[in-house]
Nucleic acid binder design. Structure first.
Lengths: 147, 147
DNA sequence: AAATATTAGTTGCTAACATCAACTAATTGT
DNA sequence: ACAATTAGTTGATGTTAGCAACTAATATTT
């Protein structure tokens, strides 16, 4: 009982710390340049990894976020010129999301920082540990989605 | 590289789903009564589990949050009469945080829901899985705290 | 073809959370 | 007694989330 709840809190704490360190590293490694928040980064990255073209609705589903939330995020990314909306010629309701050149550049920088940090923070953990971690995360997510 | 980043995003997604389900269950099981947010719940619970009396600063440290953030949370909990600040007689700067009777009642209700949900979502996972999960979370948190 | 239903995105509003700097009052240290 | 430190507060700013209502575009039904 108490154990389970603590895990969510610990999880939250862990993520908070990771983001804090991440932010600090970004500041240190880039005194200038475009700064984006974790959520913005998450969306930018998600868009960039999709092979086929995606629309806002797709991203909302994929990230499990409310469509307004996605819209706001896209607004903010578009404002920074990291992403562009391109209306579908056949269905004018749909906006395809495209990562700009600058977008890819920022993404690359951020990914490098993420990579370094994760390498560092994972030291001392086995691959099995990490795989189990992902398994648990995925398992709980899927269970939760069904409720 | 991409794998590590995805885990943070997946983690975030998982937590989002868990909170969604949690909220839904609360709504279903309590058509009335005091509603509190995950953060409020987290703080309320944290306060309740400490044997010795704690002050705001303690909670900020313990939860890894900014003191203003804690203050605001306490404000909101105090407003709902779930928590009370009690000034230390010897050091008037310090406020001890006490969970009220109502506070314990709400906490109990919420804990019950949490317990049920976690039981349900953990089905199919072994104790070893869960332990490893906690181990990884704790490991990363500690590593991050040192950076 | 026209009417209705559905879809994708937008808007306005509200709530919650986080952080920083500056500040105040209280206590401790010199 | 004064300076430094501490605990909490305030104001401002930024970010994210969610809901309902709305608009324009498309699909389906009549």
């Amino acid at each position: 009982m108490e154990k389970h709840n603590l895990s969510m809190q610990k999880l939250r704490r862990m993520m908070h710390e990771v983001y804090r360190v991440f932010k600090k590293s970004i500041e240190e490694q880039q005194h200038e340049g475009i700064k984006i928040s974790p959520e913005q980064f998450g969306l930018l990255h998600a868009i960039s990894t999709k092979d086929e073209e995606v629309i806002q609705k797709d991203m909302a589903e994929m990230m499990g976020k409310n469509k307004s939330a996605i819209l706001r995020l896209i607004d903010s990314l578009e404002e920074k010129e990291l992403v562009r909306r391109v209306a579908d010629v056949k269905d004018r309701r749909k906006n395809y999301l495209m990562v700009t050149k600058v977008g890819y550049k920022v993404l690359d920088q951020y990914m490098r920082v993420v990579h370094e940090l994760m390498e560092e923070m994972q030291q001392g953990l086995t691959q099995n540990d990490i795989d189990t971690f992902h398994k648990v995360v995925n398992h709980i997510k899927c269970k939760a989605e069904k409720l």
